[in-house]
């Protein structure tokens, strides 16, 4: 058994023959209490991505940019998010949770200090969209030797021959970007999406997740035999916003998505 919640969860899903369902929310939007409630309401979600708001989110589309901006204005901070994580773990929430954040947030905190805090707060994984393979050395050195927090790798349709190199030693799952690097493209698939996902799947030793631009389970129907799971980001934030951040709306949407995903 791996000593990491994400990998344990993915193993369990694989045994059951299920695809993973992953959602993204921005921490502190509209406030940390609501974020905690929205996390707890998602019983059907397999893994949760928690975005740490950053002033200059260059890899995000307008929805997450705005969410990030509003969360910062409402007082969301990295230390506040660690506090939220700790209290969730103290309450017995065992769901795998990944921090999605920009590298400067880590650098500013101090890389080793940041990793220690992740261990203490029960952060299971990190997605750092502005940290390509070539720049991962320092963070990987700090994460190395302790399975509690792992680094999740991203690949894009233009990664091509970089994919095997990126996946060499990769942990958890591989996050496939599907709209040339930016979220919120309204379900528009990159023209060569099927070939791209098949290629990643063919070389990946770990589960392949399709991210960016998914709204409903039916959106991934065309690639269901290729991917191991789906990630919903911008759409989930829009949905939460429209529902006034009502945790019940999160529960309903995620229950339905997971059920439909299983039925594909």
């Amino acid at each position: 058994m791996p000593n990491n919640r994400i990998e344990t969860q993915l193993n369990k899903l694989s045994e059951r023959g299920e695809k993973a369902f992953i959602t993204y929310i921005t921490a502190g939007l509209p406030d940390m209490d609501k974020t905690a409630q929205i996390i707890k309401a998602q019983e059907s979600t397999d893994i949760i991505e928690l975005g740490i708001p950053f002033s200059d989110p260059i890899a995000d589309g307008p929805v997450i940019q705005q969410a990030s901006y509003e969360a910062i204005c409402a007082g969301a901070t990295l230390s506040g998010t660690f506090k939220l994580m700790k209290s969730l773990r103290d309450e017995g929430v065992e769901k795998p949770i990944i921090f999605m954040l920009y590298y400067n947030t880590i650098v500013s905190c101090g890389i080793e200090n940041f990793v220690r805090k992740c261990h203490e707060a029960g952060v299971d994984g990190l997605i750092v969209p502005d940290l390509p393979k070539e720049e991962q050395e320092s963070l990987k050195a700090a994460l190395d030797g302790d399975d509690r927090t792992i680094l999740i790798e991203l690949v894009s349709p233009v990664s091509k021959d970089r994919v095997p190199e990126i996946l060499d030693g990769a942990r958890g799952f591989v996050y496939c970007v599907s709209a040339m690097g930016v979220t919120g493209q309204g379900g528009t698939f990159h023209s060569t999406i099927k070939e791209y996902l098949s290629y990643v799947k063919s070389v990946s030793p770990i589960p392949v997740m399709m991210g960016f631009g998914i709204r409903e389970a039916s959106d991934v129907a065309q690639v269901k035999d290729t991917i191991d799971g789906a990630i919903v980001g911008s759409h989930f934030i829009n949905l939460m916003r429209d529902a006034g951040f009502d945790p019940e709306a999160a529960r309903e949407y995620t229950d339905r998505f997971k059920k439909e995903l299983n039925a594909l």
Binding site: K133, E134, V177
Partner: peptide, 23 residues
């Protein structure tokens, strides 16, 4: 690390994966 991308400890290529081949 791409050492020619650095001036001492400054510089580098902190962009999304989708731009690495472009760079």
């Amino acid at each position: 690390m791409n050492s020619k991308a650095y001036y001492g400890e400054y510089g580098g290529q902190f962009v999304s994966e989708s731009l690495m081949n472009t760079l």
